[in-house]
Amino acid sequence: MMRWLFFLPLVVFAVLVGLWFWGLNPNRDPNALPSQLINKELPAFALPALEGSGSPALARSDLSDGQVKLINFFASWCVPCRAEHPHLETLAKETSLPIHGIAWRDEPAATLAWLQNLGNPYTRIGVDQKNTVGLDFGITGVPETFIIDAKGRVRYRHQGPLDPRIINTVITPLVQALRREAEEAS
């Protein structure tokens, strides 16, 4: 009669094994935290420019200009930012992707010296000394990188320094997909 009940443990176990097998996907990082902002519009902000850098200031209104762009939080005191910097330089030189920087919790003079020393890959730079915009973005530290689509919505967030693997496997394909999406919409 209740014979099927004896199969119940096996069925439950099979479902669990399926789940675990999915969970072992090597690209899945159990410690990664997704951004709360994904697919949401950013709130309004306007940051002052970094005097002497040659890059104009950054405000919310600059982000919905119909272009896909990258926003990078950095600071001169941040060692991983230094490791990431050459990859941003390459990205700026070799692609047409606008890269905007937000100098986070840093003395403007120190930021400027750092950029003059290492090069300036940023199209626009906003100075966020008091972490006001950092709070809006919900960043947990620097460096952090966001991809913003043509309408000014956050589509991707990366914690920690960018490296060629992330740029080639995640950033570049995503930027291309977002550009196609924007073309189709228009």
């Binding site: 014979r3 004896f6 199969f7 443990p9 096996l10 176990f13 099979a14 094994v17």
Partner: peptide
């Protein structure tokens, strides 16, 4: 575990 639960399903009744 799958093997023993399978055995359980068949033999335990």
């Amino acid at each position: 575990i799958g093997g023993s639960l399978g055995l359980f399903a068949v033999r335990a009744p």
